[in-house]
């Protein structure tokens, strides 16, 4: 299995975004090149119930198009303000139908006050089967 590299400045952006929006879930798009996250763009969470659902707004989709146009592989991130950094049944149902096999970065803030945020990487296939990707924080 390949190791996904996440540069620290982007990881910091991710944590900042998740914390700022608490208790809402946040979401955004990632651009990857050769298994390394090179871009992280916030999307507005347009869900009617953002504490328990997330969905991109049109600007978010435009960012997806933009990163694709730049030749980057698309990844998606979202936060779990209170639960484990693991795809929920809802996440699996949605992603298996829409973005199967796409890299999913998930940040959980469930223990943020004590042990800090947790970030994990997954892919969800068309059958909703989740596989864990190794994730490494790298400098710059």
């Amino acid at each position: 299995m390949m190791m996904i590299e996440l540069p620290r400045p982007l990881a910091d952006d991710l944590v900042r975004h998740a914390r700022e929006a608490q208790p809402d879930e946040v979401c955004g798009v990632l651009g990857l090149r050769a298994e390394r996250v090179v871009r992280l763009e916030r999307a507005r969470n347009a869900a009617a119930t953002p504490t328990v659902r997330f969905t991109f707004d049109d600007d978010g989709y435009r960012r997806v198009m933009q990163l694709e146009r730049e030749g980057l592989e698309i990844g998606i991130y979202h936060s779990h303000p209170a639960s484990a950094p693991y795809p929920s049944a809802t996440d699996r149902a949605e992603m298996s139908a829409t973005w199967p096999d796409c890299l999913q970065l998930m940040i959980s803030l469930r223990h943020d006050a004590t042990t800090g945020p947790e970030v994990k990487a997954y892919r969800i296939d068309r059958n909703g089967v989740v596989s864990v990707e190794d994730l490494a924080l790298v400098d710059g």
Binding site: V52, T55, I76, S83, T90, D91
Partner: peptide
């Protein structure tokens, strides 16, 4: 451009929400 939705969420069903 065709873009599949990016969505997900908590374990709660829509009914529970």
């Amino acid at each position: 451009s065709i873009i599949p939705a990016v969505a997900g969420g908590d374990i709660f069903t829509e009914e529970q929400v």
